[in-house]
Amino acid sequence: MEIIAQIRHEIESQEGRAISFARFMELALYHDSHGYYMSDLPKVGKDGDFFTSATVHAVFGETMADAVSELWRAVGLKQPVLVEIGGGTGSLCKSMLGRIRETEPDVYKRLKVVLIEASPYHRRRQEEVLREHEVAKVWYASLDEAAADGAVEGVVLSNEWLDAFPVHIAERTKTGWKEVAVTYAEGRFREVLREPSAPLLAALAEIESAVPIPSGMRIEVNLGLKQAAEQVGRLLANGFVVTIDYGDREEELYHPSRKKGTLMCYHRHQAHDNPYIHVGEQDMTAHVNFSAWSRYGEKAGLQEVAYMRQDKFLLQCGLLHKAVAHQDTDPFASQAMKRNRAILQLIDPAGLGGRFRVMVQQKGRERHPTALPAFLINKKDARE
């Protein structure tokens, strides 16, 4: 495969003939011509490799639309902006806009939508599915590009964005921290341990100041979180940031029970932990460090106001009220039954509801010191 040849070429051009795992992951996912996310392969849904909450059913987007509308009202915006980062196929944005058009037509007419999407394939898909909506829309290929174009007032939303960042892998050995690097030998990719870079060591020290890491444990470190938080802080002048992803606070994320880390791969709806097969043809993700996301956000002017599991968040946003009564008997033909099954799937504590976390941050609160919406009043950690 061409992507393997490209990665091998970079490996062989480096001193020590190895690259960091983060660079390997970046090339496998984001190489301009052959990266997984940059290709035209279906990725989300039954024809792809994985499902997201947004693709389970439009009721997820309808619920998020109601939540975002409340956040706009809390800030008192006359011309609200919705920013979606990493929206994939556009299914979430489509269902949200449909709900806003139905329930708040006056807001819909004034609304501006900003879509930040690195994948040309997904940008084309978004343009197609959102064509029916006549609201003002603008696309950017990167968060940095969007932030450079001027700050906005509104809500910045992401669903499964941060988990797709390339991550460094570090292993705590008896002699200290080592970084996992990737080389190529005997016809396949192999791992080697080497001394960590200065930025990685600094991040590891920050983690260990909060959580002791035992010898023999591997953890993933997302060095891109800090820059992403800074860019979101620049992009948002006033409003809220809603981040939905699987992850945890540091004390849970780096618990000894996760001795091998959290890196997972998804290929044709099969989950596994080997990133060195199906290269360029599979998704790779790692759990989000929400403690770090909150810390970096604070430095960027984003104040954490809520953090909880997805099931609790959706319930507090009124998801159960969207269930419909019916007398249907055919589970395959009944739209009502499909809707109700999707609601249960979204709040299943053993599935999407329990695995995903929602963090809400606010910027500019001093300008609008009104009460937060009711669904944000509980600030306790998700595990409580």
Rank of each mutant, 00 (worst) to 15 (best):
T63E: 03
D32W: 08
Y121R: 01
P275R: 01
V135D: 12
S39K: 06
S215L: 01
N222T: 08
K174G: 08
A54P: 06
E304S: 14
P214V: 12
E191L: 06
R365S: 15
Q316L: 14
G364Q: 09
K260G: 09
P349F: 05
S257F: 10
A333N: 04
H269D: 12
P275A: 04
M1Y: 08
M264G: 02
E208D: 10
S142L: 09
L319Q: 02
C265M: 11
G297L: 01
M1W: 06
A382L: 03
R268N: 14
A342N: 05
I4S: 14
G239Y: 11
T370N: 12
A300W: 05
Y37P: 00
G61M: 13
A333S: 11
D283Y: 03
L253A: 04
L130V: 09
V44S: 02
E160T: 05
G98V: 01
L319N: 03
G88S: 02
Y296T: 04
D47C: 07
S209M: 08
R8V: 13
A74R: 12
N340F: 10
E179G: 04
V156G: 04
R123I: 07
V182I: 12
A141K: 13
E195D: 14
R124S: 05
V113G: 07
I277K: 14
G88K: 00
E153T: 11
A342I: 06
I7D: 04
R190Y: 03
G90H: 08
L204F: 02
A292W: 13
V113S: 06
P166L: 05
A147F: 02
V241L: 15
Q231T: 15
A118T: 12
F332S: 07
L193V: 02
G86Q: 04
Q327I: 13
A382M: 04
T285F: 05
L344P: 00
G35H: 06
E15C: 05
V324P: 00
D106G: 05
I343H: 07
E195V: 09
E250A: 14
A164E: 03
I347D: 06
L27V: 07
A342C: 08
Q362V: 15
R258C: 05
F60P: 01
D328Q: 06
W72S: 10
V113M: 08
S13Y: 01
R357W: 03
A382Q: 01
Q303L: 15
A306I: 01
C317I: 02
K379W: 07
F165W: 13
Q14L: 07
